[in-house]
Amino acid sequence: MDTDVQKLRDMSGLVTPMALRVAVTLGLPDRLSDRPATAAELAPELEVDPLALDLLLAHLTTLGVIERTDAGHRTTDFGALLGADAGNGLNNLLHHDSAAGRADLAFIDLVHSVRTGNPAYPLRFGQGFWEDLAGQPHLRAAFDRQMNDRMSRWIPQVVAAFDWARSGTLVDVGGGHGSLLAAILHAHPGMRGHLVDLEETAAGARELLRSQGLAERTEVTGGSFFDPLPRGDACLLFDILHDWDDENAHRILARCAEASDRVLVVESLGGSSEFDLVMLVHFGGRDRGLHDFERLASRHGLTLVSTTQVTDGRTLLEFTR
């Protein structure tokens, strides 16, 4: 029983997760990677309290993220995984002033989401996640990096798993910087693409598609997927609908159904319980099952005609009128 109690204490503790996030926010993994320093030396540089910093460094040492040397604290190989240039996306996920790291702070109000079914993000920050991104360009940039990091791991599987060439013109709705669309077009030279995303992100997509020699085969529209969409042979919604409640999911699907007779929805069909809570707290969204998507789509005259697993955790649902 004591073992079980300790296990629950370990599972519910906030100290270690917050210590790691604060370390990233202060830039400690990078600062201490090649220049060891003591808390007294670091405190004025970071504009923090030296005693409090020493306590933080002590816990990070216990975790194996940093180590003590004669010259002061130094980042370990393990701790280097938290660095800004580590290439794994962790720094961007944990930093308090990134989109994901900031949003996770709303978990302190999870009880609000459970009681109301609404996201906790607006309660903590005064407005919704997407409104926050629109008003703070650095958050939008951090979110785009997060999506690019995630997509880069999946692109080869997604391109190979589905017959994209059946769509002469593919409208990538909420397509980010266009890395997936670019890969699909490179694999199928006869296709054209049209990407739609908010203007700040669309600007990055134009640059990426131009740099990959796809400017002549693509168009990029800066705008919202709640507004009328450009016409195409198929509309692609990759990891879009789980960010939204049913009301807004219907609005997005309605725009896609107006623009095309084929709608391709890529989602996780019943993801992890942890991910569902993230969607709830951040956006008021959730993962859905196959029948949930069929129900949503049917209101817009769309019928499921095929399912294709495109990554280990993602399935492409093909709907047609």
Rank of each mutant, 00 (worst) to 15 (best):
V305C: 05
F162P: 01
N91F: 12
M191T: 08
A58N: 11
R192W: 02
A58P: 00
T315E: 07
L46T: 06
R192Y: 06
T303F: 00
L185W: 13
G270S: 11
Q6Y: 09
G87H: 12
L253D: 00
D233T: 03
D233W: 01
A106L: 10
F107A: 07
L195E: 04
L82Y: 11
L94N: 06
F319S: 08
V220Y: 06
G270T: 07
A165G: 10
P156A: 10
V24L: 03
D163Q: 11
G204I: 03
P122Q: 06
M1D: 12
P29L: 09
T169N: 09
E216F: 00
R295V: 07
R217F: 06
P29N: 10
D97P: 00
S152V: 00
G101Y: 03
E258Y: 01
A84H: 13
L82W: 03
R145L: 14
N148S: 04
D245G: 14
R286W: 04
A234D: 01
Q212I: 02
E294P: 03
A249G: 11
V48H: 04
L94I: 05
D70R: 05
S211A: 14
E47Y: 02
R251K: 13
G175R: 08
H96W: 14
E294Q: 15
T311V: 12
P156N: 09
S179Y: 01
D239Q: 08
G232K: 06
R145K: 11
H194Y: 03
T221L: 14
A160C: 01
L105S: 13
L208R: 14
M11V: 00
S260W: 02
T315H: 07
